[in-house]
Design a protein around this nucleic acid. Structure first.
Lengths: 150, 150
DNA sequence: GCAAAAAGTTAGCTTCGGCTAATAATCATC
DNA sequence: GATGATTATTAGCCGAAGCTAACTTTTTGC
């Protein structure tokens, strides 16, 4: 191997490593917003179904305890996604509503895609819940197109 | 609505809520093993490429600092996935190797699937990294079948 | 309208997974 | 083989997200 080749392959290697690292960093970022997205999406659903989102219902549907919900709602409020008053139900801010809508959209595309691949509804719902936070815009577009034409 | 219908719909509702909650619980469980899986997969790669897995290389490729790697390796050792000696490289246990193999397998299927959907390699790698931890066996089988026949 | 049940909150603990700063060990080079 | 650079570890901080136990507030049913 000449020095030039060596240099080139080292540089190529370095780029590959960096891009890999960036992928991991991206995944970690996505992970950080997962919980908030799940809550906001669920709150929107509850408001739609029941007219209000009570912590106790959020807890039941998320499969966590009431104090966990309380703490998470505190973070959501801090981040400007919801408003709440003590001992009262929760409401979405404009920003929260926008996020909820986006999440619902993504969730539906992923779910429809999995179903159109032939997956059973139970598993599809389960997998969609995990996958929806990790699909890029591009992938989402391909998923949507696939469901459409099948 | 008769009382019977009311009861039925309540029960149906309750089942739906519980199954939703279980989906969330499942996602949280998957999340807990994500980091371990990523590390083990990467360690296997490094050993294959370089003959050994050094913390500094793990750190670079994961995009985290050395102390973060040290702490995580402590957890992996505690959980029986790796062995290590102070100031030395890391090795996989039998269990760690098995997990790494499984992860690599899943990663490849998801990646191939995304590519065969028409996604660009860069984005495919990125999305695969996030998605691979959240696909059930069934979905994985469908992904594999799809890549095969396309 | 009061008492019991349900819902919400607060306090305090745990683990995980990040970080920086400081220290210790190993390696490489002369 | 000493010394400087690289690598690894330790200590200690933080925030997120889970939990239980204890308490307060609200709602409900008689």
């Amino acid at each position: 191997m000449t020095d030039d080749e060596n240099l080139d392959s080292n540089e190529a290697e370095a780029r590959a490593v960096e891009s890999r690292a960036e992928a991991f960093i991206g995944v970690r970022e996505a992970r950080r917003s997962e919980v908030a997205e799940d809550y906001v999406e669920l709150i929107a659903e509850l408001i739609h179904e029941n007219g209000e989102a009570r912590p106790v219902d959020i807890a039941t549907r998320m499969g966590v305890t009431a104090p966990t919900v309380a703490k998470t709602l505190g973070r959501l409020a801090r981040d400007g996604l919801i408003t709440r008053a003590k001992y009262r139900s929760v409401f979405l801010t404009e920003e929260g509503r926008a996020l909820a809508k986006e999440c619902r959209h993504r969730h539906e595309i992923v779910l429809r895609f999995l179903l159109s691949l032939g997956l059973d509804p139970e598993t599809a719902e389960r997998d969609a819940e995990g996958i929806e936070h990790h699909v890029s815009e591009r992938t989402l577009a391909l998923f949507a197109a696939f469901s459409q034409r099948s």
